[in-house]
């Protein structure tokens, strides 16, 4: 069972603001899904390796050759929040 407090903590980890009123509602819905996920406990996975990639490939590389970068104008084109070629954000703490 995920608690209201855990919902708020996970919300902070995921940087999604959740106020106290919402966290109750979230907890209910998330718990119904987590209950469903719990059915995996029945599966015997002893000695079963995890599958991270379906394709069994290794060692895909790129040569150390320079490719053209984007013009600064394009880099900053999707924001209003810029200053002297930099992105501009609020202070950190």
């Amino acid at each position: 069972m995920i608690t209201k407090e855990e919902v708020e903590h996970v919300g902070w980890l995921a940087r999604i603001e959740i106020d106290a009123k919402q966290s109750d509602a979230y907890a209910v819905k998330l718990n119904s899904v987590l209950d469903y996920f719990g059915q995996l406990d029945e599966v015997d996975t002893e000695n079963v390796p995890p599958t991270y990639h379906v394709a069994d490939i290794v060692n895909v590389f790129r040569k150390d050759v320079v490719q053209e970068s984007m013009p600064q104008e394009d880099v900053l084109a999707n924001t209003e929040n810029k200053q002297e070629g930099n992105f501009k954000a609020p202070r950190i703490m």
């Binding site: 999707n78 924001t79 992105f87």
Partner: peptide, 19 residues
Amino acid sequence: DGTRYGLRTEGENWHVMAS
């Protein structure tokens, strides 16, 4: 996270802005 593109909702610091 509102920093480089897309929506930004202002907040008193970066983490609050992102949230």
